[in-house]
Nucleic acid binder design. Structure first.
Lengths: 186, 186
DNA sequence: GTCTATACACCGATAGAC
DNA sequence: GTCTATCGGTGTATAGAC
């Protein structure tokens, strides 16, 4: 079995439960059933492990969202695709999503190059920007709209996590709240 | 001078810049011009210091918001008071607000009793709940509305922080975005 | 109350055998 | 590649003088 992968999985589990600094590399190795020193064969430092885990998960999430959007054309469709794909992914991969949140709110974010962060966001951001300009939404700053969409998505995610609805109800909430968002923006 | 207070101030500054775990107690004491050991006379453990700082700041923020709301009557007024007071406070006390964010997204949150967290939220939450029931907003789950309001507030705060507008422009954005929020909810 | 000095536990990372 | 053993640095917290 891929030991690198096993280490990443163990790290994810432990980081989310205890936090980065409360999780020694020794525990990660143990959880993965791998010797302490071997961890440093795969990852030069603990930081490198954390960052590798982040980019890994982030890519998965972005790939999912991008796939959902690719065949959409109208701005509303694209936006809804972005919105529901993000939420569905987050609900389906709660631990991974929680890790992303933790990472984003940690000092690690400064250690990863800006381009690498933006790179993931770029395609969607660009698409939205394009859309906003051509369509008649609101005469608002694009960055503000982007903030609004992100915030809305984030908060509904929090809401869904605490409620633990059925798949059906979940989808309904996503639809409903997207319409609210759309209403606000147009 | 109140050494306890000095320690709290130094801790705030360093925590926000470097993070909790990257800030040793020795640096906090040094920054405050106080001996290392003395810190542990005022705070039994480092955790105790972090938590004291959190409850301290949170109280300040809540006091400000509560004061802005107390003489408001209609739901819209109350909501707007809550919204703009939160944003204004956050803008005026960026470091403190950043600390709250960091704390909330850390494992420390689990170490503080649930009541203590809710206690701060209760008055406003209750008020809103009351209002939502009596008024004709949307036939939506109250928790969802609360999430929406929080998310909206949070995202506009992020937006304002990155833009660094003048006081005037800031107030304008707050007004504008509140109307958007209100439009969405009604 | 406040300081200095220090105990001691822990953890990231390395060395070196297999 | 993977293991065991261990080093060196760091940081929380305590002891004890003043």
């Amino acid at each position: 079995m891929d030991k690198r992968k096993r280490l990443l999985e163990s790290a994810l589990k432990l980081f989310v439960e205890f936090g980065f600094h409360e999780t020694p590399t020794s525990k990660i190795a143990k959880e993965a059933g791998i010797a302490n020193g071997t961890l440093f064969y795969f990852f030069a430092t603990k930081d490198a492990l954390v960052i590798a885990l982040y980019t890994d998960i982030k890519s998965q999430m972005m790939a999912h969202v991008a796939k959902e959007i690719e065949n959409k054309t109208s701005l509303k469709e694209v936006l809804k695709g972005y919105y529901s794909a993000s939420l569905e992914w987050a609900m389906k991969h709660k631990t991974k999503f929680r890790f992303i949140e933790q990472f984003t709110n940690s000092t690690y974010l400064n250690k990863i190059a800006d381009e690498a962060i933006q790179e993931h966001l770029q395609p969607i951001y660009k698409l939205l920007k394009q859309g906003f300009k051509n369509q008649v939404i609101q005469k608002l700053d694009v960055d503000m709209i982007f903030a609004l969409v992100s915030g809305h998505t984030f908060s509904i995610n929090q809401y869904l996590v605490t409620k633990d609805f059925s798949k059906n109800k979940q989808a309904k909430v996503i639809d409903e709240t997207f319409e609210l968002l759309w209403k606000m923006l147009t």
